[in-house]
Amino acid sequence: MSLLRCSCFGWMKEAAALTGLAVALGIGADLVLPQGVLQQTAMVLRDLELQVPVHLWQPAQVAAAVESGEIVLLDARPPRDFQALRVSGSLHAPVADFEDMVEELAVEVAGQQVVVLLPSEAIDEARHLAQRVVTDLGAEAVGTLDGGIDALWETDVPREGKEAP
């Protein structure tokens, strides 16, 4: 038992030494780097405080929530895609026009639960837009769709548009 304790002590002592080295390296590197966090603490803290949890919705969950009217869908695809096929009742706010539509959209989504719809390849854009749906539009909660909007066409969600069956 005491042998084990001695052995563990050696491992922990080495780990503590490496951690000390890492702390010195981390702080030193941060001070040297032009975009170091310590030189812009207030800005980084503000960005961290503005972070909003974005939930990941499954297509079947979204279809059920649309049916029960629990959520508002915000379709951010270009107009051509939206006109071709869209979920019935979804709001349209193309990414490129979002800035100009903030006031108009805020009326519709403030206090609501919103899911942002974009193709799966635009996941970064969808996450970014989702954050803004809460910070700029005042939505209560926001989510993105697993598999993007194309996954939603596999469900029986009500749809309309030129390509609607």
Binding site: W11, M12, V23, L25, A29
Partner: peptide, 21 residues
């Protein structure tokens, strides 16, 4: 920084037990 130090210790074998922890 902890990841870099851990990686370097694993590669060199210096303070290997600490790096494993």
């Amino acid at each position: 920084a902890i990841e870099v130090v851990t990686g370097a210790a694993l590669l060199t074998g210096f303070f290997l037990r600490g790096a494993l922890v």
